[in-house]
Design a protein around this nucleic acid. Sequence first.
DNA 1: CAGGACATGTAAACCGTTACATGATTAA
DNA 2: TTAATCATGTAACGGTTTACATGTCCTG
Lengths: 169, 169
Amino acid sequence: MPKRRILPYVLLGLINNKGSLSGYQISQEFKNEIGEFWHASHSQIYPELARMKDDGWVDDEDDGKSTYYLVTDKGLKVLRSWMAEPLKDNEESFSLKLYFIRDEHDPLMKTLIEQELQINRDKYSHLEDRLKTVFVDDEQIRNNFGHYLILTRAIERERNHISWLEDKL
Amino acid sequence: MPKRRILPYVLLGLINNKGSLSGYQISQEFKNEIGEFWHASHSQIYPELARMKDDGWVDDEDDGKSTYYLVTDKGLKVLRSWMAEPLKDNEESFSLKLYFIRDEHDPLMKTLIEQELQINRDKYSHLEDRLKTVFVDDEQIRNNFGHYLILTRAIERERNHISWLEDKL
DNA sequence: CAGGACATGTAAACCGTTACATGATTAA
DNA sequence: TTAATCATGTAACGGTTTACATGTCCTG
């Protein structure tokens, strides 16, 4: 399977979050929190917006200074359908999709958190197994100390993430 | 500046950790913990190993079945020099470099943790500032609930990471 | 003896960054 | 008035993935 292009969904989500945005404004958005999970340079953004307009996902309004884009009904459907797709293994998708939820009571939120919880519980138990099988004795730890550290760190990170997710449910 | 190629350093670090590895074994390694931070497919690994051999970073030994690679003195210097470079903003480099530290008492460990701590304290205070400026009232939170969640989650993640780093020092 | 794992290699496609360009507006 | 920011666009380059290829070895 080809690597899933998610840039168009990110753009849809950003525009939808703010109501309307210009290409330049989108490029500025990536300096904020969204930039923790995704980034795109202006040379990607402008052509992508043009393609999205061709596909009828967005409309544009030009005020003479900038071209502002708005999500169409079709675009909103595309966005929601992407957001409703089951999460894959990567945490970025979870964060991105969560970021694009505006309404406190959107039912998608619970689904997302439950999916992420499942993924992370599996990962957690996998990491614990690895710790037990790879580091059977102290010598293993002493001779691969960095590996030991990042593994225990990963376990602690998962634990922290899981308890946050449980708390939000 | 061109995007820094770190694949050769990752290969050096992996081979150095295990003593010797074949291309195939390296591709399998990415299924383990290292895969959390970096991945490469075999179509990248084999040509890269050939280049590294040309550059004298590794030697190879063929047992008829597989070609095993070993880090040369020159390769070890290259690896250590990369590991000693100041960390940039991304956590992957920290994890990778830590992973490549075998000896519990390697002085590089303290330096790495201190650098990572500095980076994360800065990030933490930046995120706290963002929270204060973006979410000034409850209405902001209600209307951008996903954004609010991922921001508070990011803050909690940093807090957890920072206290782990402090603990290890 | 067939299917899966081992083992290595190259070519094409894809996606993203950097660099190259241009011009308007605004603040020092 | 000049440097920075706003604003948009395209071309070249580079790194990674996917697909195409091939052959061996081992296990059920």
